[in-house]
Amino acid sequence: LPQPMKKPCNGTLVNKIVSHLLVAEPEKIYAMPDPSIPDSDIKALTTLCDLADRELVVIIGWAKHIPGFSTLSLGDQMSLLQSAWMEILLLGVVFRSLHFDDELVFAEDYVMDEELSRLAGLLDLNSAILQLVRKYKSLKLDKEEFVTLKAIALANSDSMHIEDSEAVQKLQDVLHEALQDYEGNQHSEDVRRAGKLLMTLPLLRQTATKAVQHFYSIKLEGKVPMHKLFLEMLEAKV
């Protein structure tokens, strides 16, 4: 069921969008690291790549519930997802990690601390993700903002292969308006809050690029098994 709004709103379409995005939020996914295998870099990376592959399936299903996404051409739907998938994955990790200190909650059963990050060779990348966590912690990002920002990251992914840029712009406008309307109603004390949230997107893009490059180089080494969808999305980004 949709969560009730915290304050009465104007009943406009835009707030319906935030409510709709809350309902469309996927169920949590577990990492399920193999307990019979001793911890190693390969095990950690295999666990993360398998988790990402399963999350991608869910993200593709989720995107279809963003109002206006499914009316885009199939080509444009693919282009947006191919550009934004890592940003969407990272926003999920970041949101799950907001109530943790210096740990990244890739899944409820897979929380990476500094030691595990070092073991996996992910110390640099995870430090970059923790910088995003700190940013959203300081903003006290709430769930409504998280789901709206995720949809905005998808619509605003700057793919070079968009066929109908007017339709994509319309999608961006609808989501932007939803965020502004939500902030106007729920955070009227800070008139710059929507802007502050949008200003986090460059760091998200930068961190996602770093993550894709890192996992692409892992793919080239060939030591970590990767599922087909994850590989397909990784190859679409480089």
Binding site: A24, V57, I60, W62, L74, M78, K228, E232, A236
Partner: peptide
């Protein structure tokens, strides 16, 4: 689309959507 056939299939196939 040949290079991206899983994404293409999942977008076309309604079965991947989470139940709402």
């Amino acid at each position: 689309t040949e290079r991206h056939k899983i994404l293409h299939k999942l977008l076309q196939d309604g079965s991947s959507s989470p139940d709402i």
